[in-house]
Design a protein around this nucleic acid. Structure first.
Length: 413
RNA sequence: CGGGGCGUGGUGUCAACGGUAGCACGAGUGAUUUGGGAUCAUUUAGACAGGGUUCGAAUCCCUGCGCCCCGACCA
């Protein structure tokens, strides 16, 4: 894409109403637009990042057999009444609305009930299980306090998966398969080393512990205690001697950290299926309860976490897997040569943003640093005289001159 | 939801004593300029909303709305 065509612009200054680094940088660089507190729109650059994260999540969910679908945002209240999650006294962050005829509706904040309802049309027998379905969709939660840019919003993008199993043993197998897939997702996002499976309170979902996936960060809302050796952590919420013993953790081997919850997995047991009257027939034709699990990944939150964690004082620094473009090609007064290189890189399937704007070199460099595309390539009189193009990684300080062929080789194209 | 802070052009501003709304950035135009947000000229554009006090309100008061922070909450 040519930068002269990009309708968003960078800003020198961050808006005064944002304190969170992720929001400041993403807004300055033109990735997101704040609609209101906790509600952000994704501009072309931001959408590219979001789509790249979705692609990774999708690939890993598909790899463990997940079937993608898309549920609705508008929800009939009846199914939520059956599980006792409609009442504001029970669930206080619903957005609710009404049909013209006065019927109450909910605006989707999670999807256990509608999924069970939809699945009930097809699930009858033990032969139908196990299976997993998921969607990547906006969720709406009336948070009393939105904060920290993309980290806690009222409208946000989430991947939510649901498994259906015939018994607890089958469920445990599915569950661990998905947990393994979660690790892969975080690895591919470059967060693997600092993301811990963390025991936590299952809330009203389940009597058992749930697992959270916590990425270490000072901006995190959660206090967790990490066991570095075992690569697990326990959320402060459930840090009691009794729980430590249950989980085989020792207090003096734990280190206190701050974490951002980038995912979670819950054992739902039969709570929702029973409440919505969904059962299956076993081999003997006897009616049995279904064991369910649910699994979330905060897709837009992950974008905020990555923006926040990898940034430096000049701007964003995107990991190659999710960067909006692979290469930022800066043309410093060498139009013909720049266009040629742009065409060549594109022909090899490389995503390139060509800065063909009529602005000063300094502005191009500053914008390039702010936008944070992994590879910066400069075509200028100076680089051509030195024998080619200047190549620099956003995450490193040194640049070197090389030929386009050498660059292609380095990028494995 | 409790507490605190704050609302001035598109953006920023610990700019303005209750008395002419200023500066910078951006954007437009023209010129010069191309290795770190370059320079000059010129133009553009503003008090969150409603009420009150006052001869006079950006400034004081009330109400509402919005935003940020701390806490509580967070399926």
């Amino acid at each position: 894409m040519k930068q002269s065509q990009l309708f968003t612009r960078t800003k020198k200054e961050a808006p005064s109403d944002e304190v969170a680094k992720n929001a400041q940088l993403l807004i300055r660089a033109g990735f997101i637009h704040k609609e209101m507190a906790g509600v952000y729109a994704y501009m072309p650059l931001g959408l590219r990042v979001l789509e790249n994260i979705k692609k990774i999540v999708r690939e890993e969910m598909n790899a463990v057999g997940g079937q993608e679908l898309m549920m609705t945002t508008l929800q009939p209240k009846e199914i939520w009444e059956k599980t006792d999650r409609w009442d504001d006294a029970k669930v206080d962050n619903w957005f609710k609305t009404k049909l013209a005829n006065g019927a109450e509706l909910g605006v989707g904040l999670t999807h256990e009930e509608p999924i069970v309802d939809a699945v009930s049309n097809y699930l009858n027998s033990y032969k139908d299980m196990p299976f997993a379905v998921y969607q990547i969709q906006n969720k709406f939660r009336n948070e009393k306090r939105a904060k920290s840019g993309l980290l806690r919003g009222r409208e946000f993008l989430m991947k939510d998966m649901y498994t259906f199993c015939r018994d607890q043993a089958q469920h445990e197998q599915e569950y661990e398969k998905i947990v393994a897939a979660y690790y892969k997702v975080y690895d591919r996002l470059g967060l693997g080393d600092i993301t811990y499976r963390t025991y936590a309170d299952g809330g009203i979902f389940t009597p058992r512990f749930s697992d959270e996936f916590q990425t270490l960060s000072e901006v995190g809302e959660d206090t967790i205690y990490v066991d570095e050796k075992k690569r697990v952590a326990i959320n402060e919420e459930i840090l009691t001697d009794e729980n430590l013993e249950k989980l085989d953790l020792k207090r003096d081997e734990l280190v206190q950290k701050k974490g951002v919850e980038v995912g979670n997995t819950f054992h739902l047991e039969s709570k929702y299926t029973n409440a919505l009257d969904l059962y299956y027939s076993d081999e003997n034709g006897e009616k049995q309860s279904i064991v369910m699990g649910c699994y979330g990944i905060g897709v837009s939150r992950l974008m905020g976490v990555v923006a926040e964690l990898f940034a430096d004082d000049k701007g964003l620094v995107w990991p190659e897997n999710i960067a909006p473009f692979a290469v930022h090609l800066l043309n410093l007064g060498e139009n013909e040569e720049a266009e040629k290189i742009y065409a060549e890189l594109k022909s090899k399937g490389i995503e390139v943003l060509l800065d063909d704007r009529e602005v000063s070199a300094g502005e191009k460099f500053a914008d390039s640093d702010l936008i944070g595309i992994p590879w910066r390539i400069v075509v200028s009189k100076k680089s051509l005289a030195a024998g080619g193009i200047e190549v620099k990684k956003r995450s490193e300080n040194e640049s070197k001159i090389m030929t386009v062929e050498a660059l292609l080789q380095m990028l494995n194209k």
